[in-house]
Amino acid sequence: MSQFGIACLVGVGGAIGALARYGASRVVATKKKPGFYATLTVNLIGSFLMGLLIGWHVESDHAAVYAFVGTGVLGGLTTYSTLNVQKASMLRSGVRRMLFRYIAATYVLGFGLTALGVAIGDMMRT
């Protein structure tokens, strides 16, 4: 597929991912929960699915699928900018315990779920 075609797949995937993330933030806001619940949820789901793609060797074996699902949808679904701004805001508000829990949950569970996804993806491939 051409570079232009790949870029279009990435863009459409990114739009879908961004809408899903926005949807999650709306659900959390409707339930009157803090916004970081939505960010944590999408980041953990996206990290697990990215692990699956890695374990499955999707990037090397199916470049177009990876461009759409991995770079597009999962890249658009997950976010680092919101995470870092939330960390900065929590530090300023002085909610230290919540900040610590948020950081621990995001990084420990995020990386753990990626590793789990890789293991499962690897099993599914063979």
């Binding site: 990114g14 739009a15 991912g17 961004a18 993330r21 980041n43 996206g46 990290s47 699915l49 990215m50 692990g51 793609l53 890695i54 991995g70 770079t71 999962l74 890249g75 658009g76 679904l77 997950t78 976010t79 680092y80 900018s81 919101t82 995470l83 995001t106 995020g110 990386f111 779920l113 990626t114 590793a115 890789v118």
Partner: peptide, 14 residues
């Protein structure tokens, strides 16, 4: 939000 990514970060870290 779409520009930045946490899934690729974890994938690259792995």
């Amino acid at each position: 939000g779409a520009y930045t990514t946490f899934s690729a970060f974890n994938g690259q870290l792995w």
